[in-house]
Amino acid sequence: MELLGLAFALQVLRISVPYALAAMGGTLSERSGVVNLALEGMLLGGAFSATVGSFYGGAAAGVVAGAFGGLLVAALYAWVVLRFGADQIVAGVAINLLALGATRYLLKLIFDSASSSPSVPGFDGAGWAGLFIALTALCVVAIHGWLMLTPGGLRLRAVGDQPAAAHSLGVDVLAVRWRAVLAAGVLAGLGGAWLALDNHGFVDRMSGGRGYIAIAAMIFGRWQPLTATAACLLFGLADALQLNLQTTTTLLPREWVQMLPYVLTMVALVGVAGRSRPPAALGTPFGR
């Protein structure tokens, strides 16, 4: 096994794509003050609708459908959380359970199967996958630039840190948060589309905790797009190592490698508690 080869680097990138897209969504949403545990459900919803889209209209339609599926899940989450002020953690967990149940139900309704969809057109050849990876990288840079350097990004961060002050300056807090959560849905939905199309089909529970890993990466990256993406690559590297070590050595038990991102996140949470803080108004509803 060649750990430093091009094939290995590509494998790390492939694994990191859904992490990075979901983490970007999480960052936008949380910087606007909305906790986003629902990323897991958005990934799953995106993966399922991408599969349906690709089944009926090919891979390109699948990508669009994936983004739309994520958007749909996000809209439900935003509606419950922003319109009704539901507890964001409870609602996030519930959305994830809902996505799990709903995708299984639809799997039976549409594809008459309890566990997986039929094979659908996906990313064949290097072209599609390469393009998707490049666009993901571009997306990360664009979001970082927008969030950190533009007035729009400043408004979003202000809404997450000082909603009352932003409101008094004429910023529509709820509208900014709605847009941030919907954007998170599109991004995570695209991440889900990648999962499904890379796999040429949907499998029950295929998001497999990636939404939570993305949240871990976002926290590890201190709520900043570039560092969060670096954390995603680190977690992707751990995954790729695990996949390769599993077949070749018994140097480190694979369960230990599996634990790594989660342990690192706990350490980061404790370590950065003094230096880096989440957005000040994270999780707090804002009434009109």
């Binding site: 439900l76 419950v80 519930a94 359970l97 809902l98 149940g101 709903a102 299984r104 139900y105 039976k108």
Partner: peptide, 18 residues
């Protein structure tokens, strides 16, 4: 599909939270 039950349970949580 028994998955309907999972959907119902999630909706109960969402509705109560809201």
């Amino acid at each position: 599909p028994k998955e309907i039950v999972e959907v119902i349970q999630a909706i109960v949580i969402l509705a109560i939270a809201a």
